[in-house]
Design a protein around this nucleic acid. Structure first.
Lengths: 235, 235, 235, 235
DNA sequence: AATGAATGAGTTTTCATTCAT
DNA sequence: CATGAATGAAAACTCATTCAT
């Protein structure tokens, strides 16, 4: 009976989405299970039927974000990086990515801009959880490395299924510490912070959502383009 | 009885510093007045002798940061910007700062780097409160604009005693929205986030504190120098 | 459909036996219907299909023990006491049981020892419920007299189908209060407590189960034999 | 200000005594902190000011009983056993205690009866906690060996400060397993159970409290006297 | 006969805050 | 200034029980 299943699933996902909103607006610690239940229109005990604890909801939300971001990044790497390496149009040597031709780097640049846009838009549409992750990463708790793990997933090597993909093809791949710092604090950190503070920024700037989004996008692309030099990317 | 006064002051500031640590490590909501009292070695009720409420401690901490940063920025503006304007060596027109000579922009550039360093180091040594401010700015509460207000204080015009200083001298002073976005999310945001995540970054990167600091500083200066073009700064 | 019936019965008795274990290990109040269901491998709601409430399971278990013990005691009385009275080999007068001959009391003594053994072994193999009964008899609830009722059933007169049997034959039958106290606290109480604490005793003594059982049996028989004096039993 | 102290102490001990009553009447698990607070006329939170948890109250009660019983037993051993050994009037060899004269064993017998009475009366006046201990010893929890530990304290050797006293004087001191079983289940077990079921017994027997107490005492002394044979005690 | 979902009424525990001294 | 005791309101979590299918 798929209909019944849907109703059920609907209940659980209503809980999840209300919890996400509450966590993201007040922070996990100030959010109240009571209020989440009331807002989701369910009995408080039902929340504990689906989740072991308030914290388990948090974990679930964060894990979901991880999974989604991982897919996003993996798709980009597979589609563009791996493909170009296999076709001999890209050669990675330590922190230098050398393209075979002007044309190749141009097409890769375009792909990067598109990916950039995807990441920013993804972050924006998931800004609830992004706020939560930033919040939790500031606390000395189990999620204190959440942001780093997320960023690793997008940009760094070890432990990430993503970079194992690149790694397996080119063992020379590596970064200087400073490059990592730059990418962390001036690359993806701004993206997450932008998403996290998007609503407040829109409100306090008086601009429209898309004006703000577009401004950010162009700023971000300015940063991205700093990596491109002639036929190379220097990370 | 200055001695007694000192002892007393010491007690109060011990409370403040313990509260700061707790707020910064767990977030305001998860911090416990009980534990702050125990950690500070004072009776819980004494905290309420010095502060009206738990929230009052938070407010005090945030206000202190505001004041300190305000001084820092004001000093820079007074010492360098105002001085140069008065000496006719700098002319601000909308988002373009025109310097009279190569030499002037060079000396201003140096001042900027020094200021940059001061701001980063200030943020680092106050990273406890910085974390707290980031925390609170993520919540829908009374401090939700704290970060924006702080950044305004450093970079923007209205409402800031700082820019009133500039403003009063040059009414043409203004920014494009995109420039503001860039400065927000790729300028000072990274600085605060760097400070906030400094300890975690040091730990997870395996580098020393000063290696991390220096790497960040150079990255940051790369961003700063993007504003300098010939004899002009284009914001 | 006997097969189905069996499966069903099996389900119900699995519930009963798991409930018995849980009640006996944690006490009724700390036992959880949830856990019983999980342990029995059935849905929680099914328990409520078979039993009106958690308490109904308890009542059922206790009632079952009552019935079993009642049979046990009744069988002994019928087989030995009533038979001997009818054959004129035993005459009960108040708290003195007079046997016709040495031989009669010897054979009765043997029967008593056998009965003793039966009771101890019965208690041991039902130690789960015995624990439960002790639990409940300690509480101010509906089962607070459970132990007394049980002991009455074995040893005392009124209200027990057992002693009505004797009573109907010999109206002089009675006990002194002290005799009752002795039988209560040094007769059957030890048996139930022995059963209830058997596992813990075995574990903490380091002896084997049968060593412990046999030690107890001999101790108990020492008590029983105290009643036998010449050709009489003085209760 | 001792007066203030007293008021305070009074509050805490009121909590303790109400908790004791509730635990003993309903069992620990069915007792409600809410009701204890209401009954003790204090705010529920105050209970948690004095005790870490509901369980901590239980632990405190049990520990107190242990300490009291320990003193009781130690006093007897010091006053009578140790004294007689030192005076050469008693010689312990394995499970046989040999007295020097008729007179010595007579005076020891008297002391035993007095001690017996003390223990029974102590148990009676602490029957609340005794019930609690019996209850908890039946559960598979942290206090499951409470009864054994208590009995060890009174009658057994190792680990007890008591028997270390005897032990240090006479290394031959020991028991047969069966003797231990007898003492456990027909010696002190009945005493605790008597105390635990005293009220119910009084009520259901229709006798007065002292009639019941005296009946039990005589019964118990019958058991005690079983150990005395001529000039020896055989345990 | 059996189940997954749902619930009302608790249950222990917590916590910011206040009071009396 | 400083404290131990006290509290009201709420917090997370639980649990026996029921409902719909």
């Amino acid at each position: 009976m798929p209909f019944v299943k849907d109703v059920t699933e609907e209940t659980k996902s209503r809980i999840i989405s209300v919890a996400k909103r509450h966590f993201s607006e007040k922070g996990f610690d100030a959010a109240r299970v009571d209020e989440i239940a009331k807002d989701a229109g369910v009995n408080k005990a039902l929340i504990y039927y689906y989740f072991e604890s308030k914290e388990a909801i948090l974990d679930h939300l964060i894990q979901k974000l991880f999974d989604d971001i991982s897919s996003l990044a993996l798709a980009f790497v597979e589609e563009h990086v791996v493909a170009m390496i296999e076709q001999g149009r890209l050669d990675i040597e330590s922190d230098r990515w050398r393209f075979a031709s002007e044309e190749d780097i141009q097409s890769f640049y375009k792909a990067c801009l598109q990916y950039t846009e995807k990441v920013v838009d993804f972050s924006l549409s998931n800004r609830g959880v992004v706020r939560i992750v930033i919040f939790e990463s500031l606390k000395h708790g189990k999620h204190k490395n959440a942001l780093f793990r997320l960023l690793d997933m997008l940009y760094n090597k070890n432990e990430s299924p993503l970079y194992r993909t690149i790694w397996s093809r080119d063992h020379d791949f590596d970064y200087t510490p400073e490059a990592v710092v730059f990418k962390f604090f001036f690359g993806f950190f701004p993206v997450f912070n932008f998403a996290a503070h998007f609503d407040a920024y829109v409100q306090s700037s008086g601009l429209t959502e898309s004006e703000v989004r577009d401004s950010f996008m162009r700023s971000y692309q300015k940063i991205v383009s700093m990596y491109f030099r002639g036929k190379e990317i220097v990370l």
